[in-house]
Nucleic acid binder design. Sequence first.
DNA 1: CGCTGCTTTGAATTCTGTCAAGACGTGTGG
DNA 2: CCACACGTCTTGACAGAATTCAAAGCAGCG
Lengths: 244, 244
Amino acid sequence: MAHSPNALMIRKLDSIFSLSDEERQVLGSLPVQVATFKPDRDIVRIGDRPSQSFMVLQGFTCVYKLTAEGKRQIVAFHVPGDLPDLQSLHLKVMDHSVATVSACTLGFIPHEALYDLCNRYPRITAALWRETLVDASIFREWMTGIGRREAYNRMAHLLCELLVRLKAVGVAEDETFDLPVTQTELADAIGASTVHVNRVLQELRADGLIRSRGTQIQILDWDRLKEAGDFDPLYLHLRQDGKA
Amino acid sequence: MAHSPNALMIRKLDSIFSLSDEERQVLGSLPVQVATFKPDRDIVRIGDRPSQSFMVLQGFTCVYKLTAEGKRQIVAFHVPGDLPDLQSLHLKVMDHSVATVSACTLGFIPHEALYDLCNRYPRITAALWRETLVDASIFREWMTGIGRREAYNRMAHLLCELLVRLKAVGVAEDETFDLPVTQTELADAIGASTVHVNRVLQELRADGLIRSRGTQIQILDWDRLKEAGDFDPLYLHLRQDGKA
DNA sequence: CGCTGCTTTGAATTCTGTCAAGACGTGTGG
DNA sequence: CCACACGTCTTGACAGAATTCAAAGCAGCG
């Protein structure tokens, strides 16, 4: 299932602008170093000054921050095809940490190579910039949920988002997907306690919106889940056909 | 007090990279259309497809989203020197709305002019890109607060952030600044109810952390306010000297 | 089979929201 | 110059969402 990192990148950027042959070629020859990580490992830490960014090739990663009290907030999940750490290209010091959630395969690309790329291909710059803007849009949506929606609805919203994003990169089909994320991590993502996430998931099941077996999540009633989550995919800025 | 829009932009970007004379000149000749807005007016709305971005020259603006239930979450405040709507350069459809909070003077710049600029000056592209990344960093910090800190601490955090940001652009000096924002708006920003914001502000006053007279906020005990807010300015990505 | 980590339950507590009403302040109009 | 109106701020009482603490099931894995 592990795509070639370069192929994944090309596919991603190509879906935004139609890349020229030259652009494809340059992207194809980017030096990418592939590495695997176990679940729950920090990839970059707050305070670090990374000299490379990476693309998720397999698995789930998350971006998180800790409060002084030691509470954790996950501010983003990233799935195959995402570039969770692009911002380190222009913000030298990490203001957050990035970690694996499941076991992951990652493709690291030196900043140098990206700078070079950006200097020569403004359209690729724009595409990468756009990626970071979509991330920011998702932050806004999550913040709105955490600030103004109840836990039940936030959970529904998160499940909607994940299904749509996973479908967009072809990692999910139909209404089922693998969610290798513990309830504690879900809690950190929606800003609730583990106990409460547990109860909210039970409610979603009882209401017939979802079903789960192990880490598999099945959406039983997409329309009602969408409504419960107040989910409108506009903020994901996907193309009309729902592809990334 | 209204700076020339171009001068403000040059100053901002110059503080990130030292601009060359040519870059200064190009920025100085950007076509900027200045307009004034009354308080509480939408500047761009969700669903719009703007053909220009703008810089705040005077006043406060906010970025907000509404839930299906009609609740509002303010996800960002913007102050003079900020470019609240830069992302519309690459994300065609607005996923949120932007509005004035106080009366504002804004400088609009056509996207066309910005595209042109970016195609010719990669360093300016990088500086603008960086602006949007700092916005995203602030989203992450706010999300962490809303998800994991209590209202009292979020309020303290917000006041810390505003003081630092206003100082960075020279709109605040010492420990006092003008906050032309109602308690309802503060509530929408920290994800709390108006009533609760009122009580939290009273607590902050009672604890001797702040004082307020009208819209003027005075920080009485910066160290304790910082601690209460769990505030570390790292995420603002300012230069060492605290300038924007 | 026994860890270890994750999920599930129950009960008590606390933070925060909602509702409703009154106080305050400023600008307008008579 | 005073009365009035409107928006904002402030208070009190109550309800509800969600947290915390604690303990008991479960499941996968060596």
